[in-house]
Design a protein around this nucleic acid. Structure first.
Lengths: 303, 303
DNA sequence: CGCCCGATTAAGCAAAGCTGAACCATGCTG
DNA sequence: CAGCATGGTTCAGCTTTGCTTAATCGGGCG
């Protein structure tokens, strides 16, 4: 059995980024933390923490940190089935990959269903999410692609509804005679990142020639909405983010009543049982409340 | 983080069944073990070990022991990816449910593919195997039924070939005029346990009236063969166990060339990664070498 | 150039936790 | 039924771990 007091110190340092904060998290002096980490490094014969602002883990250090978190997950399971255990010294941290639009719209609601847990969210840029799950770097992920990760269970969440939106002013400037293929190929649009195919997908549903308009790159959900509001271009925005603007007339749909539904999936690693089960339940519940259940074409914006 | 030195002591006691053996496994005196367990019990406010010959765990004690083993599994994974770690103080124990006939024929070979591991085999009497897997009491199981356990991955292993066998003497006594429905319904057969449907299954393939012969109950694989050799009755025996006897004429088939193939499945819980992956690889390899790959009707002898 | 923040080292001390020996319960044997 | 062996527990004493406090180092910034 490994020396867990030592490992906890290491994990706390990497987690908090400093020996001092780690010390106060563990209720000891920074000196003690330093000694623990040093001892661990000496025993293993390799550096585990790169000292700096903030302190960060080496490859070996990160791997050990990951192990500590896995054990913590098992412990939290144990606590659920066995009352009377001493309370966890550090709150449970769930590292989860989320796509940006989910985070911007409904995922916060799901997080409120897990009181007592801390979340370490990772925006799954350029499809690293599957890799992260595979490597065990995250414990679960919500992705717009159904890419199945071995060793994980996948639950459909429902679809996030997107609307092609722009400001009324923008519409007047670029579509004075209505939306047609000609104007669509000239009017600038917004694109989240290189992986974002949403605009192209929507264009394919309204035009058979699939025009390729000039585009801005705006890799943030709210910035995407703001860009549309400012008249920079049109873009596919989550209904949930723009419904108010649409109702108030600050934004309009390029083609009214032509949304695009992107199915989302919850992928959950199977290291541990009941905590993740609770989490999955909370996420599915939150998703059910907000996402559209009928199925739709797949493949979405992952960054 | 829980107190793992204390937990190790508890696990060692339950594992070895005695404070003394636990002590020598942990390289301390029995006194120390006693104190550790006592401290743990005081802290949790409940008895964890029922003292006796052998010492055994209470419900809470077993649950804690299970947790320790899970952590050990995670640690063994860690060791695989991170060289330089101190060697495990206790060898890794894999608790696995196996059906009796697999254990009697091919499973030992699979175990040799995992040097450095210890096995704690559980004969999955009366279909408890699924429940054990579900509860996490075993980490994997080989079963004759394809019953899918949630949270586990199931791999087909191939089929165990059974032959309806009896001694030549027995044949002369009970089937003097050959095997027919009349004689089949009178000749005593062997049955492994109440769950064993193999004899009935085979009878259904050779007779449309499915006779119900009188039966002995013999809940052990080798005893089953011995019973047939002794002329107690006929029974479905694994080809692998009786091939020699058949070749030497000590046993004969009731109906030559009419075997029964029972497909086997390897079910593996997904607590942990690489150790179980190795195990699965070893088991599948051993199975492939010995079991019949073409598919066959399912449902076998589980006890 | 010197100050400040944060990590490290050194010294001393408290206590956790071990050993060894005595003690007790249980079950087996003469 | 006494006597004894086995195995768990208790107690006293000591070792050692690992903490704190305080001094030291080193790098970034005014």
């Amino acid at each position: 059995m490994l020396d867990y007091p030592l490992l906890s110190a290491l994990a706390a340092v990497i987690r908090t980024g400093s020996f001092e904060r780690a010390a106060q998290q563990l209720h000891v002096t920074p000196s003690a933390v330093s000694q623990r980490v040093k001892l661990l490094e000496e025993r293993l014969g390799s550096v585990l923490v790169v000292r700096g602002q903030p302190c960060t883990g080496t490859a070996a250090g990160l791997r050990l940190c990951q192990h500590v978190e896995r054990v913590a997950l098992l412990e939290s399971d144990l606590r659920d089935t066995l009352p009377g255990l001493p309370p966890a010294d550090a709150p449970l941290i769930l590292r989860i990959a989320v796509n940006a639009d989910s985070l911007a719209t409904w995922f916060i609601a799901a997080m409120t269903g897990m009181p007592g847990c801390l979340f370490d969210l990772v925006l799954d840029d350029q499809d690293h999410s599957a890799e992260w799950l595979r490597q065990g770097e995250v414990v679960a992920a919500v992705t717009a692609s159904a890419a199945p990760v071995p060793g994980c269970s996948s639950h459909p969440l429902g679809a996030l509804r997107y609307r092609a939106t722009a400001s009324p002013d923008y519409m007047r400037r670029h579509f004075p005679r209505g939306v047609d293929e000609e104007s669509l190929s000239r009017a600038p649009c917004l694109t989240f990142n290189r992986k974002d195919r949403l605009q192209a997908q929507w264009l394919a549903t309204v035009s058979r020639k699939a025009p390729v308009p000039p585009t801005h790159w705006l890799p943030a959900s709210q910035a995407f909405v703001d860009g549309a509001l400012a008249g920079l271009g049109w873009g596919m925005n989550p209904d949930l983010l723009v419904a108010g603007h649409l109702a108030a007339g600050r934004l309009v749909e390029l083609v009214p009543g032509r949304p695009l539904d992107v199915p989302l999936f919850w992928q959950q690693s199977r290291i541990s049982g009941s905590v993740l089960a609770d989490l999955t339940r909370a996420v599915l519940r939150a998703g059910r409340d907000v996402l559209h259940q009928p199925s739709a074409p797949q493949g979405g914006r992952d960054g």
